[in-house]
Computed example of a mutant assay.
Amino acid sequence: MVHIVHRLIDRLTGHARVTIMETERMLVLRDGRIDAILGPGEHRIKRRNVVREVHDLNRLRFVSPYERALFRTRPELAESHLTEVRAAPGEVVILHRDDRPHEVLLPETRAVVWIDAGPWEAERHAVDERLTVPPALMRRLVRVGLTAGFNTVEVEEGHVGLLSVDGVRLAELSPGTHGFWKLGRHVAVKRVDLRHRTHEVTGHEILTKDRVTIRVNLTASFRVTDPVKATTAVKDFEEALHRSLALAFRKTLGALTLDRLLADKVTVDVEAAEKVRAEMAGIGIEVGEIALKDVILPGEMREILTSVVAAEKAAEANVIRRREETNATRSLLNTAKVMAENPVMLRLKELEALEAIAGKVERLTVHNGTEGLLTDLVKLRD
């Protein structure tokens, strides 16, 4: 009965009753002006010239076309229900809810949140010229999924990262994951490999002093010792190394004949390598071992050299053969002299020959009889 009476009174007076839940708030404008922010419960509101705007606290932020007007015309009402958080130029604000990061505010941005949706806390961080995100803060934000405000760059082990902001080189980054705030500036990280590596120059054509065209394969081990100098002194330091190797060996080998090149290959390597090392040291590259791996000759030149080598080896074989024959003849001559001067030695040789023959036949006939043979043996013994 009471409820019916209230409804009749409200209708006669031009009012309406609204119920607001615990998770809701209502912004009321009367005659075009902000009048109140109503909390949970039942409220009696006039029907005419009233604008009602219901907000859900679960959305946390206060988003309304009347926001600025509320803070300007009713600051005490706004402060009793809302918290405004501003990030100054040069700082980033981490807005915490219940001690957990909830939102990242980049410089010169703001957020308005409901006090009753909190508790809220603002954690402020100054932004340095490198725009880096502190590592501990970056890990916390990654864990809760708040990664929209920054970019991450990974620098692998054995590498160094060269950080540039708006084209200006600022720092060297050690291996690991690095974060940078998104503030509308161009951030670039160039990764440079500091490990020992090998560079190959294959099929490089060179004209020797005696006008023989050869192709050579080169190899060089190197590492970057000054990454800043290596990336700023030249456009591409590996291309510079390739060019330096090719030119150094072209000058060195081009001043030699083919025979000299093949005969003094090690000396040629050392002379050309020193030129390359000196030039590369100027751009922050340390060059280690440099080797002339292969010297590839044209087909007709290979045939000629093969014929020359074969002739040389044949001549050497003939010399060796003649030397051995001479030695054998000299040995026979010495043996003959010994036998001529010593009859006993001659008879022993005869017996040795007889023994060798007897071992190869089934029957041996001695024409001068056994007695004569034994007599000869006795004489030899005497």
Results as ranks from 00 to 15, higher is better:
Gly288Glu: 09
Thr306Lys: 11
Gly284Asn: 07
Val276Leu: 03
Val344Phe: 03
Glu312Ile: 13
Ala311Gly: 11
Asn334Cys: 04
Leu292Pro: 09
Gly254Arg: 05
Leu258Val: 04
Glu271Phe: 07
Ala248Pro: 03
Leu247Val: 07
Leu262Pro: 01
Thr267Arg: 06
Val295Gln: 05
Glu325Lys: 08
Glu325Asn: 05
Leu292Ile: 02
Met280Val: 07
Val295Ile: 15
Glu325Val: 09
Arg330His: 05
Ile296Thr: 08
Val268Ala: 13
Lys251Thr: 08
Ala291Glu: 08
Thr326Gln: 08
Ala272Val: 13
Ile296Pro: 02
Leu332Asn: 04
Val276Met: 06
Ala255Gln: 10
Gly254Gln: 03
Val308Gly: 04
Ile304Val: 15
Glu324Met: 14
Asp269Arg: 01
Lys275Trp: 11
Asp294Gln: 14
Arg330Glu: 12
Glu279Asp: 12
Val295Cys: 03
Glu325Trp: 00
Leu262Gly: 01
Glu271Thr: 15
Lys251Gln: 15
Gly254His: 06
Val308His: 06
Ala340Trp: 10
Val276Ser: 03
Thr326Val: 08
Glu341Met: 12
Glu312Ser: 07
Gly282Lys: 15
Arg323Leu: 05
Ala311Arg: 14
Asp259Arg: 10
Ala310Leu: 09
Glu300Ser: 15
Val308Glu: 13
Lys265Ala: 04
Leu258Phe: 03
Ala314Tyr: 06
Glu300Asn: 11
Leu262Thr: 00
Thr335Gly: 07
Leu256Thr: 04
Leu256Cys: 11
Glu274Gln: 06
Val295Lys: 00
Arg323Asn: 07
Ala263Leu: 02
Lys293Cys: 07
Leu258Asn: 03
Val319Lys: 07
Ile285Arg: 01
Glu271Ser: 12
Leu305His: 12
Ala278Glu: 14
Leu258Gln: 05
Gly282Ser: 14
Leu333Val: 08
Asn327Ile: 09
Lys293His: 06
Ala291Arg: 15
Lys293Asp: 14
Ile304Cys: 09
Ser307Leu: 13
Lys293Asn: 12
Leu297Val: 05
Ala311Thr: 10
Leu297Ile: 06
Lys313Ile: 11
Met301Lys: 14
Gly299Lys: 13
Gly282Pro: 03
Leu262Glu: 01
Val344Ser: 13
Leu305Phe: 08
Thr252Cys: 00
Val338Gly: 03
Arg277Gly: 02
Val344His: 13
Ala328Pro: 00
Ala291Cys: 11
Ala278Gly: 14
Glu289Ile: 07
Glu316Lys: 14
Ser331Asp: 04
Ala291Pro: 00
Val338His: 04
Thr257Tyr: 08
Ala273Gly: 15
Gly282Ile: 06
Ser331Met: 04
Ala315Arg: 12
Leu333Ala: 05
Leu332Tyr: 07
Ala317Trp: 02
Pro343Asp: 10
Ala314Asn: 02
Ala272Cys: 13
Ile285Tyr: 01
Leu292Asp: 01
Arg260Cys: 00
Glu324Gly: 00
Arg277Trp: 04
Lys293Met: 10
Leu292Phe: 10
Asn318Asp: 06
Pro298Arg: 08
Met339Asn: 03
Leu253Asn: 00
Thr267Asp: 10
Asp269Ala: 15
Arg330Trp: 01
Arg302Gly: 08
Pro298Gly: 06
Thr335His: 06
Val270Cys: 01
Ala311Leu: 13
Ala291Val: 07
Phe249Gly: 01
Met339Cys: 03
Leu305Met: 11
Glu341Cys: 02
Arg250Val: 09
Asp294Val: 02
Leu253Met: 10
